[in-house]
């Protein structure tokens, strides 16, 4: 059911049609100056990087279990069943935890606006929902960027690796990284060359916090009973004393006198 993008760097010709199509789709400025920029930003959701005649795309990986969505306190970021990780600006309060948490450094911020938004590729969620492919896949003249069912794209990527021994780095990037992503990458040069970390965990990142958070509901009644119990034990002696003596007025704070002193002085 879940959709994905397969980018095969060996088919890419650095025409940057995907960049242009993405800008148009997301109503962002695109000219020669923007085309020359080589990093993702609040006004450029995808870039084609070049090193000699080797190319590599960068865009939001649309993780299967995204760190960004898991940390967002107001659920402004959300993973849809179709694959895209979407953003609802009206919910966002601008804490930027998503930016800190994303293992790929994808979400960008409109630092210079008074009503800033988080900006990132949302895998053309409206198009995908309507059964169309993403704008970047649509625009790609060589099929380097291909849109489809995630399962089928994985099979195809495995086939390409199998059929062309030595051509590719033997790794489908995004198959297992941080629990899998909806963007899959193939390359003939090591992924690190383009800033993709290959030492990422295979566990979905939200697990790391969930392991702790999930204990909280158990902790609350336990903590309450332990603290209440300790209080009961430590105050037992006073209770006994109180029963034996006529009750004294108990004052929790010893310094209630000054206020009365005040009054009397007036």
């Amino acid at each position: 059911m879940s959709k994905a993008i397969l980018y095969d760097a060996t088919l890419c010709i650095n025409c940057k049609q995907c960049e242009a199509a993405c800008a148009e789709k997301n109503q962002l400025r695109y000219d020669d100056a923007v085309a020359a920029e080589d990093r993702q930003s609040e006004h450029k959701f995808t870039v084609v990087l070049a090193k000699g005649d080797k190319y590599m795309r960068r865009l939001c990986m649309n993780c299967a279990d995204p760190a960004c969505a898991s940390v967002c306190p107001v659920a402004a970021l959300r993973k849809t069943p179709e694959g895209p990780v979407i953003y609802e600006a009206s919910r966002c309060m601008g804490c930027r935890y998503c930016m800190v948490a994303c293992p790929f450094g994808v979400p960008k911020y409109e630092w210079n606006k008074l009503v800033p938004r988080v900006q990132k590729c949302t895998m053309c969620s409206d198009r995908v929902e309507a059964g169309k492919q993403t704008s970047c896949a649509d625009a790609c003249p060589t099929g380097a960027t291909k849109f489809g069912e995630r399962d089928e794209l994985i099979t195809e990527a495995q086939q390409r690796l199998h059929d062309n021994p030595g051509k590719y780095v033997n790794h489908i990037y995004g198959l297992n990284e941080v629990g899998g992503t909806s963007v899959l990458l193939l390359s003939s040069v090591p992924f690190e060359e383009f800033g993709y970390r290959t030492d990422l965990t295979r566990d979905p990142l939200p697990l790391f916090t969930y392991r702790v958070l999930s204990r909280i509901p158990d902790f609350i009644p336990l903590g309450g009973v332990v603290l209440g119990g300790v209080w009961w034990i430590t105050h037992r002696r006073e209770e006994v004393a109180a029963e034996e003596e006529p009750p004294k007025k108990t004052v929790f704070y010893p310094s209630s006198d000054p206020s009365q002193g005040d009054r009397r002085a007036k």
Partner: peptide, 16 residues
């Protein structure tokens, strides 16, 4: 929007 967590919940978020 600081009050948003009151009505927009994400119990999986530590920040929440």
């Amino acid at each position: 929007n600081i009050w948003h967590p009151l009505i927009m919940r994400n119990p999986h978020s530590v920040m929440f």
